[in-house]
Design a protein around this nucleic acid. Structure first.
Lengths: 242, 242
DNA sequence: CTGCATCCGCCTCGATACTG
DNA sequence: CAGTATCGAGGCGGATGCAG
């Protein structure tokens, strides 16, 4: 509409001390991306969504980040109120935790994680996998309209990490740690777990190759698969056949 | 062997033709960010969420992007199946439109836009504003539990753009173009509209300074404000007083 | 050892010029 | 109008330094 003389400054805003690249747009999404859009930021938030983490722990689970960049991102996120430093439970060392504002990103992060499942290819050695990412994957895959009627728990043991899904009053929640009385226990390695989540591998196929072990009531297994949107046709017929 | 080039770089995957920086993580979010995380990509999707757009139109509404980068992003998004080229309604020229996969990003984009509202400061001349961003702002601000009982329409005229909210059967939808029978018409400039959305300015304050004009039933205005989460206390008392 | 800060090479980005 | 080509600047990644 206007010619190019509408007085903007080329999309880059610069200050004396910290040069920071902003979109310079008066818009909620642009402002959100000014905060979150730089490299690694949302992955750091993904890590912190599962609880407070130490600097070195973040560094270990985000290979390639570079220590200076991680420190700079954490500082920036702290200044903007997404992250705060908290006392680590064991000792006087500090951990980083999400603030309320940071926690508000959970639904969007989960939505992006689910959306991105479609772009996850077959697992290739050399790619980084962490078992606790399966926790978020399960949370992202919840089908709100498929929550079982009965209250029960499903436990997942992914590599060395244990978490469970708690179904209660028609709602499902993902929780860290073991369940009190799991109706089903799935034991699996992290890569296979993600691979099943993407739909590239069915639970049955993973069981056949020995990558996945399922203990407990077969009906509970099927309800759990329905809850997280996994295909159960082959598994169902296999169960009745076996 | 050169010690700097031994092995492979973690975090960077390189192919012969197009070098592309990926997180190299077997995770849905990381894959999503490999697709969406580069600069300008999500802002291009924001533009396309409101309908097909021409190349030059995108360029005009994304100042600072640089033509090469816009072309490269559109090509990449087309290859990945987020975007496709469609026939423009007027003439044989091509426009860019979101595919089904691209449309699936709407809730996450709206969520981020709403979240980012908190980081939008007061409007400073020099920042870019576009009236159609108000369309997305309204969509992002919908309070699903505050949809009015009665079916009605609210029309918004932001600079030269007209859109409306259609309330029907307990659901609200944002639509392009004028309403059939609007119960309320708001006329406002784009900057003020976003400023109200962020909560930095109340509708009443904007009316007093002449930036916002509200026509129609005062009760409809109040219902509309409730629907999009705007503070109505002062407006309500002002209406009864006047 | 943890939690950063500094330095350096490279790749992405942004602006301009240019072409069909 | 719809891009492609080019080039300088700076963000990013990796290695290293250093204080507590």
């Amino acid at each position: 509409m206007n010619p190019k003389t509408n007085g903007y400054d080329s999309g880059v805003t610069r200050t004396e001390s910290g040069a920071r690249r902003t979109y310079n747009q008066y818009c909620g999404l642009a402002s959100a991306l000014d905060v979150l859009g730089e490299r690694w930021t949302l992955l750091i938030i993904r890590e912190l969504l599962m609880g407070p983490r130490r600097y070195s722990s973040l560094l270990a689970d985000l290979p390639g980040v570079g220590t200076n960049l991680l420190a700079e991102r954490l500082k920036s996120m702290t200044e903007r109120g997404l992250v705060r430093q908290v006392q680590s439970d064991s000792g006087a060392r500090m951990s980083y935790a999400l603030t309320e504002v940071g926690q508000e990103l959970r639904p969007m992060v989960l939505g992006l994680a689910k959306w991105g499942m479609e772009f996850v290819g077959p697992y290739s050695p050399g790619e980084v996998v962490r078992p606790h990412w399966g926790f978020l994957a399960v949370e992202a895959m919840f089908q709100p309209d498929k929550v079982p009627d009965r209250d029960e728990q499903y436990q997942f043991e992914v590599d060395d990490q244990v978490f469970h899904v708690d179904v209660r009053d028609g709602r499902a929640h993902a929780m860290k740690g073991p369940a009190d009385a799991p109706a089903m226990i799935a034991t699996v390695d992290a890569a296979t777990f993600i691979e099943i989540g993407t739909g590239r591998k069915t639970p049955l196929a993973a069981m056949v190759t020995g990558k996945l072990k399922l203990d407990g009531d077969i009906e509970a297994v099927l309800r759990c698969c329905d809850l997280i949107g996994l295909e159960t046709g082959a598994l169902r017929s296999h169960a009745t056949a076996g």
